[in-house]
Each structure stands twice: as C-alpha cells, then as structure tokens.
Design a protein around this nucleic acid. Structure first.
Lengths: 173, 173
DNA sequence: CCTGAAACGGACTGATGAGTCCGCTTACGT
DNA sequence: ACGTAAGCGGACTCATCAGTCCGTTTCAGG
C-alpha cells in the first residue's frame, strides 16, 4: 500500500510542490482546481491522495510546523532565557512572513498537525523567560502566539517588523 | 424620488434593523437571504434599496462610525493628551467589542464610509499624545488602528481587555 | 508483448450565495 | 372607487468550488 507506482509518486510530489506554491501565494482560499492546474494534473488526482482540501493543506503545513519545532528546540538550548525567547519569536516571524499565505494556512488549520509538540516547547520557552523576569507574568503561551500572530497578519506589507517590536515591547516585564 | 411610499419606508427600516442584527451576529459573511428572512421581506426588496451587499453593509457600518467620531471629538476636547488617547482607545474598543461581528464588518469595509473624517480626528489625538510624550513616536495613526484592531480580533472571547493592555503598553513612549 | 490492476482526468453533482427579472399586489392621488 | 405607478417577492441565472464517478490510459510483472 505504501508502494506507489512510479507515475503516481511523481504526481504526488508535483501536487505537494504545487500546493506549497499556491497556498503560499493565495492562502487557504486557493482552490484545488488551481493547485491541480499548477501541478499539471486533473483535480481528481489531487483528491485521490488527499480526500479533502484540508488534508492537503495539513500536509503542506506540516513541513513548516516541523521547521518551527526545530527553531524552538534551539531556543531551549540557548543560555539566556530572555534573549532566547525574543530571538525565537523573531526567527519564527521571519520564517512565516516570507510566505504570508502559508502563514494564513497555518492559522486556518488551527494548529492541527504537529501542534501539540510545538505548543509544549513554546510553553517552556515562555515560562523560562518569565521566571527570568524578561516577560510579563500575566500572559500564557497561547496569548503570546495570538498577539504576535495578530501583529504579523495585520501589518501592511513590509511593516510587520515594526509592529512586532511594539507587541514585544508590550510583552516585556 | 426621495419620497418613499409608506410601506416601502417601513420595509427599509426593517431591513436596516435586521441587517444590523444579523451582521452583528454573523459578521460580513451573513447572507442577504438571512437578513431578508430576518426582516420578513423577500431578498429582492433588499436589493432594490441596496444594489450590492456591500452597499447595505456600509449603511449599517456608517452608524457605528458616526458614534466613533463623536467619541473622538470628546477625546480632543479633554485636557490631558495622554490620558485622552488611552481613554479614547478604551472607549472605542468597548464600543466595538460589544458587537464583534459588526467590528469585523467595519474591517471588511476597509473604512470606506465616513472614514476620512474619523481618520483625521484620530490623527490629531495620536500626534497630540506623542507631542506630550505619552506615546512612542515611531507609529502613525494607521499603525495604532491596525495594532489595536488586531489585538481585539485575535483575542479569545472575554480576553480582549488583557490583550489590549499589552498592546497599549507597547505603544507607550 | 500482453494483461490486469493502478492511476488518471475531466465531466458531473450538489451546495451556496450574489444579483436579476417580471407577474402580482398595494398604496394613494383623484 | 379606481387606475396606475411604486413596490413586492420569489423563481431564476450565473459563478464558484468541494468532492464523486467512471471510461480510458499507463505502468509493471510474467
């Protein structure tokens, strides 16, 4: 069952690549038809591998979530908890704002794929920074995520760094 | 032409009231059919008065924008510029968060209706507060609006006051 | 080769929602 | 009261998009 025919595997890759491109460009509203066209296959082919549009989106989003987990693990290994936290936020923001459409897909997915793990890591980063007195104590990790995310998505193109600084200033103890 | 027949005027009011209710409950995605049903008229009747859905939404949004203008004028009349600014933001937030759906409509409208005027008033409030040293100088009125708005819309139900405080802290000089 | 299973792709369905049209109804001036 | 224009409402069109189905094509093992 894991053994796909050669053409099938090729098409599967094409679909995933196309989906990454199109979702990155148009966000979660991208249509399956457009992705299929971009991949050079019929949309029936897409649906055979991914029964629903969300399934396809999760597959694309998963890669990004994995990257973020890696960044989070690095932050936990760093020495200064406060610096680690702010650096982590900056790096994740940088990662996501390179493809704002994909970022909106992550939001749309409600963090379904490998989110629990990432959530746990972020929780550690935040509470460590709070214990070190670098971050105000009346916020939870979910609050940090929501606030940062909203600053990023509401900023006009090219302005998100400034907006992020404002929110991060507000988060300092 | 401005003289509507009595039944027409009655229906127009019903439509506007229904639209206010439904948009407040469901945001900009509310369908014309639902509004018409809620008003007890056919949807043809709605379209006769408001050629497009956006026209109807603007009409509803206009009322709220007028309220905000009034609050802004009060703020400009206050003595302490810094206090006036933060108080203004709080009051506008309070106003909008009582009907989050309508708030989303305002966002959707991109501030089309009477926004220029409101924009101008807010500009004065902000720069006055900046001159008084209460607000950081590297933000423009549009930034304030975007940041506050994003904090409000991204907060979980009941949490928006906390989120607003974080952003306002970030905006202080 | 040659055959059968796997894969393909596009026609089709079904749902939704904006906006149009027109035959019927109703207000209101005379 | 009555004629008519304003008003009504819902059936209809049109577009979009997710998801299904099935006749045809293509791969791969013997």
């Amino acid at each position: 069952m894991t053994e796909l025919r050669a053409d099938a595997r090729r098409n599967l890759e094409r679909v995933l690549d196309a989906a990454a491109d199109v979702f990155a460009a148009s966000g979660p509203d991208a249509s399956i038809d457009e992705i299929a066209r971009h991949a050079g296959v019929g949309h029936g082919t897409v649906f055979r591998r991914f029964p629903t549009k969300d399934d396809l989106m999760y597959a694309v989003v998963e890669r990004r979530v994995a990257q973020m987990r890696a960044v989070a693990r690095e932050a936990l290994a760093a020495d200064d908890p406060g610096e680690a936290f702010f650096d982590f936020v900056h790096r994740v923001a940088e990662l996501n704002m390179r493809t704002p459409g994909l970022h909106r897909c992550i939001v749309h997915c409600g963090d379904k794929p490998g989110a629990a793990d990432l959530e746990r890591l972020v929780g550690k980063i935040v509470s460590r920074a709070q214990r070190a007195g670098a971050v105000r104590r009346d916020v939870k990790p979910a609050d940090v995520r929501a606030l940062v995310r909203s600053a990023l998505t509401s900023a006009p193109p090219g302005q998100w760094r400034r907006y992020l600084e404002v929110v991060l200033d507000g988060l300092r103890a």
